[in-house]
Amino acid sequence: MILACGLALGASSCVKAQYERHIVLEPVQTDELQHLVPGESDLAQCLARLGAPNFVWERSGDSIAIAYGAYRHQGWQVGASVNVTRGVNASFDYGELEALSRGYVLLFDERWKLESVSEGLLRDLSTKFERTPPQSVE
């Protein structure tokens, strides 16, 4: 009786327990960061070490910031649902990447020389300087 009820609930997707893991991008190699020297390294050297950033932001006075981030999370979700695929969104979203990622923000001066490297949540780090929104290309 219990088995039949369990199977019936499972077959109709009334209840679910879901173990999810999301991997979004790869973090930068931290050992590469040790080769970067504020006041000496320029933008080209940083890009050669770390690859393409995830974000490029304009700061005041012709200075810029670039950011590298990635995230992964995993865990259980238990609840009731009529559709086991609801809420699963595999599309890539730069807003979500900035909100959820830990990583590094590199600040450059107006000559594009490295000023500083900060580590943490990108959404926190990106609020510490003034930036302008990106322009879309049609």
Binding site: Q18, Y19, G51, A90
Partner: peptide
């Protein structure tokens, strides 16, 4: 993005892996 899902009765295992090519 590659997603892998497996459901057994009421338990679902789901993996989502997103990787990217970028050039700035």
């Amino acid at each position: 993005t590659k997603r892998t899902g497996l459901t057994l009765f009421v338990v679902t295992a789901l993996n989502t892996d997103t990787q990217e090519d970028r050039l700035w």
